[in-house]
Amino acid sequence: MKEHTEDRFLCDECDRPFLSRSALIQHKRTHTGEKPFACKDCPKTFAQKTTLIRHCRSHTGEKPFVCDLCQKRFSEKGNMLTHRRIHTGEKPFKCETCETRFGKLSTLIQHRRQHTHKGEKPFVCGVCNASYTQKSHLVSHQKLKHMGQARFSCSVCSAQFDNKFHFTRHQRTHTGERPFQCDTCHSRFALKANLQRHQSLHSKEKQGRGCVSCKPHPGPGVAEWRDYSHQSNQHFTR
């Protein structure tokens, strides 16, 4: 360790400065690979005690962080803060190319690939070279195709899924269930995303904007509802 003249501590590997000796010690483990904090319930070890504490909650089920708006509980503060943005609508992460804003940094990173590398799929399967835009999609692929670890199997067509959300969505193609209902006109949809697109048409209809996909009509009136019906029928399915 090297101590700076301004009471800062410098890493002798990369010369990065730190304000305290303890912070420098933690940092040096990124160079040495030392992981002195061991979980008593599994073989995993960690470089920092705080990381061990967070990990231990996966065994105990402890969720000390509570959303003050809906009382949902979380094991990590960062996850609670990300969740809270669903209520507040806050989107602090902005794309510097198109200025679209996002509530999660990971979503922004995925979005950026549309601008930097068209069709970029950086996560590649080591067995069959299939590539994916998201790591979670690669993990699901490996479990389903190469490890035989499908968690959910459709009783109608035997399709297999690793993700419960995708499995539930698939089942609706057989049952015809449409659990998402519009508060304005009571139309029902199988997917929440389709409901949200549908509701946006109500907003545009109230503004007299007509069809945003084809030709807008000149003003409000009966034609508004015709344009709304046209968009519902022509530009997306339920």
Rank of each mutant, 00 (worst) to 15 (best):
K72E: 13
R8M: 12
R178E: 14
H235R: 01
R113N: 02
K204S: 13
S153W: 01
F167Y: 15
E34N: 06
H55F: 03
S153I: 14
P92V: 04
P179K: 09
L108P: 00
V66N: 11
Q71K: 15
P179C: 09
D227N: 14
Q171H: 11
I86V: 14
R113V: 01
S200R: 14
G210D: 02
S136D: 14
E205T: 04
R73L: 07
K35N: 02
H83E: 12
G103Y: 03
F93C: 05
S106Y: 05
C67R: 04
A223K: 03
Q149T: 01
K145V: 14
L19C: 09
V66Q: 11
L201C: 08
S155M: 06
Q181L: 09
Q142L: 02
S232K: 14
I25F: 05
M1T: 06
K72A: 12
R84I: 00
H31N: 10
C11H: 03
N129Y: 04
V124L: 07
V139N: 10
L138T: 05
T100L: 12
F37M: 06
H186Q: 15
S58A: 11
E62D: 14
C70T: 11
G61R: 07
E34Y: 07
C39T: 00
L19Q: 11
Q231S: 14
N79D: 15
C128W: 05
Q114L: 13
R178V: 01
K118V: 11
C98A: 07
G126Q: 11
H55A: 03
S158H: 12
S20Q: 15
F152T: 02
R113F: 00
V124K: 14
K44Q: 15
D41R: 10
C11W: 01
P216E: 07
H55K: 00
I109K: 13
H4W: 05
L69N: 10
R113W: 01
S155T: 12
W225P: 00
K135R: 15
L69F: 11
T51N: 12
N79R: 09
G119S: 07
S213T: 14
A38Y: 06
C98P: 03
E6R: 08
C98W: 05
M80Y: 04
H31T: 08
M1L: 10
Q142I: 02
R84P: 00
C67A: 09
R197C: 04
G103W: 01
T107W: 04
H117K: 11
S153P: 00
R57M: 08
S213I: 13
G126S: 08
V139Y: 04
K192M: 12
K49A: 12
